[in-house]
């Protein structure tokens, strides 16, 4: 476990837990895309199938449980909680996310490390995570308001991806045979998606103006 990966996991943890706590505290999910949250819950469900059959470490197991619990809790709050669900911006969060689930599933069937159920599900979760943020970015563009709830969420998610790329570079140079093309390519695609948002986020932060994404 290197520092980049630990920092990446912690940043990822912060992004999800902070979002959950904020939704729980202010009883509102304004600006949050339910589609993205559902995609993330699916990513964790598909990726952590080996939770009880493949023990890596206590840290690994605890983090998987926290990610599963927090992502499904956020989806529950946005769909079922009597107060929070009313603040969900249904008419703007219209990204047809099955248009990205199906191609990811097909791609996972074609490109995987081994053609077994768990490996295909793992590859599916990697591809899906790369594009899961799209509905959220589309919603931010549409509503053009980025209150700190979603701005910080996307920012932390982007930071986690950058840290993971640094982790892969570090592991590539320190561990022989550490080659994971599937994670690397999908991870780079995912990080590029955030680059655009980062650019506007940092400009708005520097000029101390409200973040406006171009239409």
């Amino acid at each position: 476990m290197n520092l980049f990966r630990l920092a990446g996991d912690m940043t990822h943890l912060v992004s999800v837990v902070v979002l959950l706590l904020k939704i729980h505290t202010i009883k509102s999910c304004a600006g949050v895309s339910l589609k993205t949250q559902e995609l993330y819950a699916l990513v964790f469900a598909a990726r952590y199938l080996d939770l009880f059959v493949h023990f890596v470490s206590l840290y690994n197991t605890v983090m998987k449980l926290v990610f599963l619990a927090s992502s499904f809790s956020i989806v529950w709050y946005m769909r079922k909680h009597k107060i929070v669900r009313r603040t969900y911006d249904r008419e703007h969060d219209t990204f047809r996310h099955h248009f990205i689930v199906l191609p990811c599933l097909v791609l996972a069937l074609l490109i995987n490390e081994r053609f077994t159920f768990r490996e295909v599900m793992w590859a599916f979760s990697i591809y899906l995570e790369a594009v899961a943020i799209l509905p959220q970015l589309v919603l931010l563009q549409r509503t053009r308001n980025i209150d700190n709830l979603t701005g910080q969420y996307v920012f932390f998610l982007g930071a986690y991806r950058v840290l993971y790329i640094l982790n892969w570079i570090y592991r590539y140079f320190t561990e022989p045979h550490f080659v994971h093309w599937i994670s690397w390519i999908a991870g780079i695609v995912q990080t590029v998606l955030y680059a655009d948002f980062f650019y506007y986020y940092i400009i708005s932060w520097k000029n101390n103006v409200k973040l406006e994404l171009p239409a």
Binding site: D9, H12, H54, V56, S57, N60, F67, R114, F178, V179
Partner: peptide, 10 residues
Amino acid sequence: GCLDAPKDEL
């Protein structure tokens, strides 16, 4: 081999 390296990352 490198293909079936354990999935030790989250």
